[in-house]
Design a binder for these strands. Sequence first.
RNA 1: GCCGGGGUGGCGGAAUGGCAGACGCGGCGGACUUAAAAUCCGCUUCCCGUAAAGGGAGUGUGGGUUCGAAUCCCACCCUCGGUACCA
Length: 835
Amino acid sequence: MTITSKGQASSEAGGPGSGPGRYSPAEIEKKWQVKWEEDGIYATADHVDGKENFFALVMFPYPSGDLHMGHWFQYAGADSHARFKRMQGYNVMHPQGFDSFGLPAENAAIENGADPREWTYKNITNFRRQFREMGAGYDWDRELVTSDPEYYKWNQYFFLQFYKNGLAYREHGLANWCPKDQTTLANEQVKDGRCERCGTIVEKRALPQWYFAITKYAEELLDFDQLDWPEQITTMQRNWIGRSTGTTIGFDVSEFAPSEKIDTFTTRIDTVYGTTFIVLAPEHPLVEKLTQPAQKAAVDEYVEKTGRQTEIERTSTEREKTGVETGAYCINPLNGERVPVLVGDYVLATYGTGAVMGVPAHDQRDFVFAKKYGLEIRVVVASPNWDGGELQEAWLPAGTQVNSGEFDGLSSTEGMGAIAEKIEASGWGERTVTYHLRDWLISRQRFWGTPIPIIYCDDCGTVPVPEQDLPVLLPEKVKFEADGRSPLTRDPDFLNTTCPDCGKAARRETDTLDTFVCSAWYHLRFASPRPGEDPFDNEQVRAWSPVTSYIGGREHAVMHLLYSRFFNKALRDLGFVEFDEPYAKLMNQGMLIKDHKKISKRSNPLNPDPIVEQHGADTLRCYLMFLGPWDQGGDWSDSGINGIKRWLGRVWDVAGRDFSGLGESGDAEAERSLERVSHATTQRVITDMEAFKFNTSIAALMEFTTALIHAHDAGKISVRSWRAGVERLLLHTAPLAPHIAEELWERTGHTGSIHLEMNPEFDEALTATETITLAVQVNGKVRDQVEVPADVNQDDAVAAAKASSKVARHLEGMIEVKLIYVPGRLVNIVVRPQV
RNA sequence: GCCGGGGUGGCGGAAUGGCAGACGCGGCGGACUUAAAAUCCGCUUCCCGUAAAGGGAGUGUGGGUUCGAAUCCCACCCUCGGUACCA
């Protein structure tokens, strides 16, 4: 092997980085992007002897116009980590695809007359180009595009499996409706009462909609034992699922509605004797039956008015609580009391039973409500210093049962159990568990999505499309009209069909599936990209499951990540997969900002393309990784990128240096010193890369680069050490800056791709120095530093410390009271003045 | 309101009980150059001190634990996310 250093700048000739061998990203980056593709170096086999599989998945993008800087931040980090793991000897599968169904395509169609399909596929082409320019090491053989019929066919297939097994159902009910996007939304897609996507205030609409029965898995979804996930995300899921235990108890209303009772749910059954009224949600089915003629007008008006309110107005905690009497009364089974039934909009139809027992003394909302409407406030759980007088606010903590019949005198904690037991024994109700989690609404009244494979027949009702007829294809060349309605609803070719059961004319479902269905199982398809007649090949899925490392934003905590977990468990129960969880380890990257503000196309733009052109992809990648701790995000500044560019320029210089001046064997001390920093660097880089701490990893490489330059300048090391040092530097740089590392790997005489090499090894023993610097403190203040042998004993260390004149000055006239010796760190002499 | 992250030089950040400010940006000074750019070298937390020596202060605020605290504990402030009438 010969080493060519011709044509490259040496430090003597015109200075590093100058001359004909100057680092020129534009040339080398293109070259390697083409070569890598030709050689297929990122293609992954399902099994490689002696290597463990590592599925490095990063959340795939929605192909909007361009890859923006946030994408770069995410994908460059994910790619660097995947490359690092590959160099650690894993068989790494790092795929990429496109989550290409969704509203922006349709909006572009409505606004500019673009065809959603053309618009989407044009964007995908652009994204592929940009990923290539980034130097991302994807296995493109596994690419998937969710809007391809060969992919969405399986969304339909799984929908049918779910339907046949009671996990998909259609129900007429109140759904979140975004008036701008003209579609319903799942609960998870409503943030602060607004559409998660466009920010429009969401309304409630009564519609028949399709749901996935995610609540059947609520309990299992609370189990995170198998997951190595950030606590933040599991906490968010736990809160979203919102398990609460309590008691459902029925209040008899047969006086006003024969054989009816009002079921209420409470977590505080210990306060049931304090119930002085019952409040029904305005949408509660009993409202109409119970309302008395005298109150009908008022109740109707109230219910109607509430219906007109947006979710935001409705749920604002600042708003005054309102209500109206129905004129009906019900009976508290525990004390036989007759209490009024009201309608109040602070009670939500969608939670618990849609009715609450009003206990104003022990619930702040009920308290405010009772004050306003002059309802009785009766204490049943007394605080230790309650004087029997009126309350200023609800008493929420535990206390002693009073006014509670046979339970008086018990602590409310005991009361809770005893009362629940009596209720169950008497058949008045039962202990129950409720969840905040609702079933996943999957219907979307949009065109650009997976058609729901259902046919409505006048005679046979709801009929699933037979599996052999899949996929139900989205029509081509559709017309969008200004009313925003999906073209599917007026496309006769799509709409009209025949019933698979009876053969009569029938109509297709025109709703499409929520795009989160696509992403709920895409990882399985990456594992098994060409399975033929099945959604995926079990053998291949087994080889790659669960996903070893999953990277993505925190914003998906209760959407995609929850849906995926549900989907996996449903697939498991239907026999498609054998494991419980889709993603074993989760890592969230932070958010990239600029000038302390969110980056936005309009107000705070930051386009990667010109930066790639000016500085190169490697520089941009490294700079993004260097900005700060990746899991916490980064604050972009235009000037900072020069630092990375200079560093890569120095790496270029180092690798190209003429080493003909170095000898066969070097000076022992210089050799040892370079060896030490080499091993220490590898240790730091491996530890930091493992933990996604790209910033400190790069800092270590910068220091190592400088150390190499100094070693070369001093000229005391051997050729062998120099070349080993350069090799080590390139190997560590490779995951972060793949092009320059590859180019220099070739230029330093290596054959084969650096990206298929292994990380250098390190020996911790070799990272140690022969002498160490001890800090010497007097009363905790550093007064001097002393150089001692690394294996110094305490006595010698203390003696060396006291020998320092700077230290001695502070000991004068003092009595030593204590001595702290931390080996390898410091000596602290604690003194006090002589009396 | 509740839950979570964060608050460190002019700036991005390092350091998770042991020398605060690694690494980088910016700034200042120097070398190279006819000059500039590029590159290289040095300095760069603040205050007192002409300077050096030396000293003092210092990690959002106030308290505490400890020989020693950015780091642990308590109370609070600010900020960024998430979530919110969940009975």
